[in-house]
Design a protein around this nucleic acid. Structure first.
Lengths: 127, 127
DNA sequence: CCCCCCTGTCAGATGAGACTGACACCCCCG
DNA sequence: CGGGGGTGTCAGTCTCATCTGACAGGGGGG
């Protein structure tokens, strides 16, 4: 089940996951130590369902991991902790990752939005 | 003139600027060499106004710079090129940048949602 | 003169994500 | 039994970024 997500897709996923003040704050909070959903919701003063969604997004991007622990008393508590990721973001990295981005999805929805594109004017390869 | 944008704000701006397949593609294209708007629009097969907006966003984040050059014949061409940025993205960096994020809109919204102090509930410092 | 290439900006339609309140369910404690 | 956490999920609303077509210029060349 461990497929290879193209670098471009993964990069985009990480960026979209982090491009949100709430999610940045969540990561920062988890960087100080693991916590469970309800507690974190109180700490950050946000609704549980909302926090839940953000956590799922972060987890989908591989930035945090959640584990449902069952205490001895039987109560279930879902702990989250941050993954020690390290992403060097440079134009070079982006340039190498982009070619693996899926261009657009034809097929489904009948939007055959074919573009005549340019009229073939001066496409030069000048520096 | 040269004010200090808080690290958190700047970080968020860069992330939101890059969290878009189109903008990633633009950066990748510019990484191969400078280009002007119309040419880039043809190359990436997107509308000029749209590309224009994305370029402004990238420029606002300080990831690219645009310069309006006037050729000898008087025609104006706006060239863009990528800025050699290098951002190391780690939980640590985020944790340090987040405290400088503006919490929310001040003034309005009298949500004095002050925590009734969750009492002595389970605010544990467990690891 | 008309045609072509370029920049810059806008009102408006569209869609995706953010956000809320409520629900079903579990388990312990008084 | 009732109350108090905790998780997981849902339908619905609402805001905002995105995307499009069109416009108003500036300037060169056949």
């Amino acid at each position: 089940m461990d497929q290879d997500p193209p670098p471009g897709e993964h990069l985009l996923r990480m960026l979209t996951a982090l491009a949100s003040p709430h999610r940045l704050r969540i990561v920062a909070a988890l960087a100080e130590g693991r916590s469970y959903v309800s507690q974190l919701a109180r700490r950050l003063e946000m609704n549980r369902p909302l926090l839940y969604m953000h956590l799922q997004r972060l987890e989908a991007a591989g930035l945090v991991v959640g584990e449902l622990e069952t205490a001895r008393d039987g109560s279930s508590v879902k702990y989250f902790e941050v993954v020690p990721f390290a992403l060097a973001l440079t134009p070079q990295v982006i340039a190498e990752a982009v070619p693996t981005l899926e261009v657009a999805e034809p097929g489904a929805a009948g939007r055959t939005r074919n573009g005549p594109a340019s009229g073939g004017s001066g496409e030069d390869t000048s520096t």
